[in-house]
Design a protein around this nucleic acid. Structure first.
Lengths: 171, 171
DNA sequence: AACCCCTATGTGATTTTATAACATTTAAGG
DNA sequence: CCTTAAATGTTATAAAATCACATAGGGGTT
């Protein structure tokens, strides 16, 4: 299975919902991860790299056990901790995010920059898009601050129907 | 165990973090739930009412199994579906919310008005406060709209330290 | 009241998600 | 090399959620 998702006009869509060269999307992000890790003395070991690759291959959340199946197929250990430990590492370093609503994981589309991610989850096709949203983080921080609450981490997930599925349903 | 939480100056805090008459908070909300249900032909049965009461007694998220234990003590069935079914009913009708981050549930502090809730979760004392946040819903809706995404439900949860715990730590 | 139907509850078994504990291997630095 | 810390493999178990099916209650109707 290769490249490009359904074609849409050139709007301000998150990558998961927009047309893009998906092969490049995968290889470039993997390369960036390699670079980031060697720069920061982190070890992107084979299992970890494979898990990241698995997640990058789709703009979709995958459960730990689904990942585990794919790891087994690829010749890695097949017990839950194998997947969970790799995911912990990747999440801690910003390469993947956990989607709490689904108890599942997605690759981050723009690691490096630290950010409070926001997601849109399509309940029809299970695509998950990460929004750029800088404003949202500030908004939350402001609201929390006036309550005297100190935010350390945020979970922002919107569930609904993505452009493609909405289009298909409307036809 | 009765009433009032720790005393704070009179700011714009969510109820969970602010001083208030907690007994009234429980009985009034239960009464409101009774009223709402009879008005709308919903059945607030004993188990359902008990679960709501359990959750109202604390501004904290409780897991389904913790609730189940309390149900058993109160003489109700003690198998998981008992708790999950009551929670489904209460959530569907806006009396409780699920905190995805914790796989747990909190009573809603202002049912009736339909709203996209936002929560602040204290990682030290596990208090959970629901923000009023009308703006946030609009913000998300706007962002999603420009991406062509139709939001049906949102999960907004901020994890951090509540005013009381921050104060205690700073001492 | 006797009946029906629909909804809610009770219960046992199972599935899905996640972690604990401990042995073994691997990689990096002295 | 040899030590040490980090990473992996594996077994077992915990925690969260659902399935399937039997039983009971609460309105309506006759």
């Amino acid at each position: 299975m290769t490249s490009n998702r359904s074609v849409q006009s050139g709007e301000e869509k998150p990558v998961a919902f927009a047309e893009h060269d998906h092969d490049a999307c995968v290889t470039e992000t993997l390369a960036a991860a390699d670079a980031h890790c060697s720069r920061n003395n982190l070890r992107l070991t084979p299992v970890r790299r494979k898990v990241l690759e698995i997640l990058l291959q789709r703009h979709q959340a995958l459960g730990a056990y689904a990942i585990l199946d794919l790891l087994r197929e690829a010749g890695f250990g097949s017990q839950p901790p194998v997947a969970y430990r790799a995911l912990d590492f990747l999440a801690k370093n910003g390469f993947v995010h956990k989607i709490e609503r689904l108890n599942a994981f997605v690759a981050c589309v723009h690691p490096e920059e630290t950010h409070s991610p926001a997601f849109m989850i399509c309940r029809m096709c299970d695509a998950v898009a990460e929004a750029h949203s800088t404003g949202l983080g500030n908004y939350l921080a402001g609201a929390a601050n006036s309550a005297g609450f100190q935010i350390e981490r945020t979970v922002v997930e919107a569930e609904g129907v993505c452009p493609d599925c909405a289009g298909a349903a409307a036809t």
